[in-house]
Each structure stands twice: as C-alpha cells, then as structure tokens.
C-alpha cells in the first residue's frame, strides 16, 4: 500500500513538475537554489530529477542559461526564454482546464456519495 501510494503520488506530481519549474524562472536561478525554494514551498523536487530536467529544457530552447563564475563556486543560472514563456502560458491554460474538470468530477462524486 505504502509503496503503491508513493508511486501514485509521484506520478501525480510529475505532471506539474515543468510548470512549477517554469513558474520560478522569470528571474535567473541556479539548480540548488530551486531545490531549496521548492522544498520550502511544499512542492519539493529531488535534485537528481531537477538538474537533468533543467538541462533538457535548455536543450529544447525553453530555458536559457549563463554561467556566473564571480564567486568561488561557479553557478549556472537558468532563465525562461521568450519561446519558453509562450509554452508556459499554454501549459498554464491547459493546467487550469484540467484541474477545473477534475474538481468538477471530484465534487460530483462527493455529492453523490453524500
């Protein structure tokens, strides 16, 4: 049950992963800062999922990156591209439609069982 549940939950979360990441990249951020941010905001994402995801999104031209080597630790900052903005808007629209219809379904189900 526990393992099944955690699999189901991670499957559910996977759908919102990209939207979550894109929503935070209006201003440039580096990988670990995003990990920390999401952990504080209850949408935690594993570092070993996020880093490869950022790289993939960059390859797809949704993100753009720049290195900051001023400090002792070099940092790769990611920021959403103009193309990424368009995609993000469309994804948000889809997202709201999906939760609306899912909400309706759940509500109906609740009303029937009452």
């Amino acid at each position: 049950m526990d393992e099944l549940m955690s699999n189901l939950i991670s499957e559910l979360k996977r759908g919102t992963l990209i939207i979550n990441v894109l929503s935070q990249l209006k201003t440039p951020k580096y990988g670990y800062s995003l990990v920390e941010f999401f952990e504080k905001n209850g949408a935690s994402i594993e570092a070993n999922t996020l880093y490869p995801l950022l790289r993939r999104l960059e390859k797809q031209n949704i993100l753009q990156s720049s290195w900051n080597t001023d400090s002792a630790k070099p940092r790769k900052y990611y920021k959403i591209s103009a193309y990424g903005e368009e995609i993000y808007k469309k994804l948000c629209k889809e997202y709201f439609e999906i939760i609306n219809s899912t909400n309706n379904l759940i509500m109906e189900d609740n009303n029937e069982s009452d």
Binding site: Y30, Y32, S33, A47, Y51, K73, P74, K76
Partner: peptide, 30 residues
Amino acid sequence: EVKKDLNADILNMLPDDYTENDIKKVLSQL
C-alpha cells in the same frame, strides 16, 4: 557539459567549509 554542470551543482549543495561527510551526504542525495 554534464561534468561541468554537475560539478557546479554539487559544489553549490555543499556548505562553505565542507568535510568528506558533507560530500557523502550530498552524493547520496543525488
């Protein structure tokens, strides 16, 4: 490229004066 990215990511996960234990913690997290 991945080497460069990952190296930066790992360094950023470590505190400023890190010990081998800190490294182990970060790597097992990855």
